[in-house]
Simulated scan of single mutants.
Amino acid sequence: MMILRFHENDTEEVVSLFYETVHSVNARDYSREQVEAWAALEDKSERINRWKRSLNENLTFVVKVNDRIVGFADLTFNGYLDRLFVHKEYQRQGVASLLVDKLESEAKRLKLQAIETESSITAKAFFTHRGYVTVRQQTVERKGVYLTNLKMRKELSATSFTRTIHE
């Protein structure tokens, strides 16, 4: 397993991994209707274009095995862990931990006090095990369909300082 910085050329593979993960792994905790709304296949080309930009703007890392992306995650410079997805065949093999370790290390380097995320029901146990606490359960709407997720937060070190706009 190798963790690498995201490159623009990775976008299509990352988006495909997202779709496959939502439609297989997250389907355990969400209905078919919810999964379809969350990751509608007809939105794929538009998502590729949007994510190409946002993944380049954020701190984004991929994990590769034999030159194949098996996981990815990204963090904004304000401490928002936006996306974390692991291929269905690589669940529970340390891929998500490797990615989140890297993002947390980067957040500390940036002197961020905390990381926040909106976790799926599926990922809640993973984040809880890593010290994230549930701030609140929330309902989000995608294409007229409602999904439950969790706003979660992890305080980093007590000696961290908030990153200011002036840095």
Rank of each mutant, 00 (worst) to 15 (best):
D29W: 05
Y30S: 03
S31E: 04
S31Q: 08
R32S: 14
E33W: 05
Q34S: 07
V35R: 06
V35Y: 01
E36M: 09
A37L: 07
A37K: 06
A37P: 11
W38C: 01
A39Y: 06
A39L: 04
A39P: 09
A40V: 09
D43K: 11
K44S: 04
K44V: 12
S45Q: 15
S45T: 13
S45G: 06
E46P: 00
E46M: 02
E46G: 01
I48Y: 06
I48V: 15
I48R: 07
I48F: 03
N49G: 08
R50G: 00
R50Q: 12
K52D: 07
L55V: 08
N56W: 06
N56L: 13
N56S: 15
E57P: 03
N58W: 03
N58F: 07
T60Y: 01
T60V: 00
F61S: 02
F61I: 01
V62W: 06
K64F: 00
V65L: 13
V65R: 14
D67W: 00
D67C: 07
R68K: 15
I69H: 05
G71L: 04
F72V: 06
F72P: 04
A73L: 02
A73Q: 01
D74T: 09
T76H: 05
F77E: 14
N78C: 08
N78E: 15
G79E: 05
G79W: 04
G79I: 02
Y80C: 06
L81T: 03
D82A: 12
R83T: 10
R83H: 15
L84W: 00
F85A: 00
V86Q: 08
V86L: 07
H87G: 02
H87I: 07
E89T: 12
Y90G: 04
Y90S: 00
Y90W: 13
R92M: 12
R92A: 12
Q93D: 04
A96V: 10
S97R: 13
L98H: 04
V100T: 14
V100N: 01
D101H: 12
D101T: 12
K102I: 09
L103H: 06
S105P: 01
E106K: 05
L110C: 06
L110Q: 13
L110T: 11
L112R: 05
Q113V: 14
A114G: 09
A114D: 14
I115Q: 07
E116I: 10
E116V: 11
E116A: 10
T117P: 04
T117G: 01
E118M: 03
E118A: 08
S119P: 01
S120T: 12
A123H: 06
A125P: 11
A125W: 09
F126C: 03
F126T: 00
F127M: 02
F127H: 03
T128S: 14
T128L: 15
H129V: 08
H129C: 10
H129A: 15
R130M: 02
G131T: 10
G131P: 10
T134N: 08
V135P: 05
R136Q: 12
Q137K: 15
Q138W: 07
Q138G: 08
Q138C: 11
T139C: 08
T139D: 08
E141I: 13
